[in-house]
Nucleic acid binder design. Structure first.
Lengths: 122, 122
DNA sequence: TAACAATATACTCCTTGCGGTATATGCCAT
DNA sequence: ATGGCATATACCGCAAGGAGTATATTGTTA
């Protein structure tokens, strides 16, 4: 069942944070790292998990992999992502992620292709 | 995070079916057995899983355990249960469960305390 | 009190998932 | 081609989860 697959993706805190951020728009791995403050391998593996199950898409831009939500999500996925957005509004850690994303926005605008050039590694 | 716990409960097909049925009202274990057509131990263990995580409540009535959704679900749980109801409308297996539940309704009304007396074991 | 019905738990086997370390891959610049 | 950066994958250890079999528990009835 499609629905079970979706919930399997949602039942990890890191993946929830990734999907929540992606609802704001596409992001590359190094931005996830900066926002979540988790090791690269952890983020990369969770993104792979989501990618294999088609909850996210990705596209290469030079050195960077840009991840995004599917262009045409199923009704079930859309419903659950909307529900997640709703629930995230009450949760401090999701809001903290959002705040960090906003801080990154100027950097993302100024440098190419996604602002990753100015990223400092962790 | 409360939300992760909810998704962990939702990420199994059997548990989804249980919760979907409970959205229609309380049920006892033997009715779940009849509707899902799964072995008693499987149903009982999944109900225990949900109970430990407080996604369902239960109450004894003589020999029978009556399970129900929490009287005051958290906002997150309510949102996700509503989302599940929405998604279930498009899914044949959920609808089949619902149909079987309707068939049970007359039996449930006639015998006490929950209609289980007339149940035939499988 | 003994038998029975409904449900729960213990135990085992097997698979999946998560985190970490180390290493590989792909693209770019020199 | 070489080195560096961003990202992915392989491998390991461990914990959790799911299914099945057997058995225990709790309440009812005779």
């Amino acid at each position: 069942m499609e629905l079970v697959k979706i919930y399997q993706c949602l039942c990890d805190r890191t993946r929830l944070r990734l999907l929540h951020l992606l609802s704001q728009g596409p992001l590359c791995v190094c931005h996830f790292q900066e926002i979540l403050r988790e090791p690269q391998v952890k983020i990369s593996k969770h993104l792979a998990y989501l990618r294999e199950r088609e909850l996210v898409q990705c596209e290469r831009q030079a050195n960077w992999m840009i991840y995004a939500l599917p262009a045409k999500p199923s009704r079930e996925l859309a419903a659950n992502l909307a529900c997640l957005q709703d629930c995230a509004q009450e949760d401090a850690s999701f809001q903290r992620d959002l705040a960090r994303l906003k801080k990154l926005a100027p950097k993302m605008a100024e440098s190419s292709p996604c602002g990753c050039a100015t990223t400092t590694r962790g």
